[in-house]
Amino acid sequence: MSARGETRLWLAQRASAAVLALCVLVHLATMIIAVNGGLTAADILGRTRGNPAWGAFYAVFVAAVAIHAPIGLRTIGAEWLHWRGRGADLCWLAIGVALFVIGIRAVAAVAL
């Protein structure tokens, strides 16, 4: 990949990491509060369904994961397995797309 492409991947991973840091904190704090508050799964779904704010939050969360994880896996694959090149990049891209699709399905299930 070109120097420009590599630099953009690096930027995308840094930016998505910053988003993830915030999203993970909010997600964990919300889970702990919900569980300690004694909310059931049905209670939680009752609050998230039809709530565009939670839907948007988790959609952003999923997008950040789908960007961040494959770029990291690409580096691990290159360094530990010496797997580089177009074939490897297409594989990581496919994993990113799969993560996004699976994640968005889950978001739709709790937010719509």
Partner: peptide, 10 residues
């Protein structure tokens, strides 16, 4: 350009 990328600073 020479120092960017997989073989460079990143």
């Amino acid at each position: 350009a020479a120092v960017a990328g997989d073989a460079g600073c990143h």
